[in-house]
Design a binder for these strands. Structure first.
Length: 188
DNA sequence: CCGAGGATCATCT
DNA sequence: GATGATCCTCGGT
């Protein structure tokens, strides 16, 4: 069953945790690709690492849309990262999806990534975007649609809380969450 | 295993 | 003009 707007329209830290164990699905003419969400990071209001912390710009516009909107941005001249917009519309909060455990459409992922090592298919925010063909074309789309959405999965097991990866500001905040012991998490 | 460095460009100052 | 919510490769240990 597909997660609805209500699921996303909750406090961002709570959504970041509750997304663990759910199944991200990318539907394309080639077929479906899907994976279990095993690692997330929250980005909130008044959080210096949040792209929306300095107001609305061309890049982050999708963050200010309704909960359940996809925010996809381009970084380092070659990578995309995918976020789910959360909480109240207009405040600019989101959850970065950092890693998936691949379950469906693995051959398509391997082709998109140019490798067959399952461990490296979706273990990292840019890796999963490449594997699922998530690009700027999906920035702003609604997760209530048919091209990118999230299905209710199994109940999360033990969840680990940690500092976020790759940021300079806000290192002190414990806004990263991942499934304990899952081998597809991007980093320990 | 680990760290350093480069790739590469849209966005913002 | 500098930077970045990353990844890959290469060289050393």
């Amino acid at each position: 069953m597909k997660l609805d707007r209500q699921f996303y329209a909750a406090p961002t830290l709570r959504v970041a945790r509750s997304l663990l164990g759910q199944v991200l699905v990318r539907r394309s003419p080639q077929g479906d690709r899907a994976g279990i969400i095993v690692e997330t990071e929250a980005y909130t209001q008044n959080d210096p690492a949040c792209h929306a912390s300095r107001g609305k710009t061309r890049r982050n516009a999708a963050m200010f849309g309704p909960a359940g909107t996809a925010y996809v941005y381009f970084i380092y001249g070659m990578h995309y990262c995918f976020n789910v917009v959360t909480a109240r519309e207009g405040i600019g909060e989101a959850v970065l999806i950092r890693a998936l455990e691949p379950i469906t459409g693995i051959p398509l992922m391997e082709e998109a990534r140019g490798l067959t090592d399952g461990k490296l298919l979706c273990s990292g925010p840019a890796r999963l975007c490449q594997a699922l063909d998530i690009t700027a074309a999906l920035d702003g789309v609604s997760l209530t649609g048919e091209t990118l959405f999230i299905l209710a999965g199994s109940q999360p097991q033990s969840i680990v809380t940690a500092s976020r990866i790759g940021i300079s500001a806000g290192q002190d905040l414990q806004y990263r969450f991942y499934l304990s012991g899952n081998k597809f998490v991007s980093k320990k």
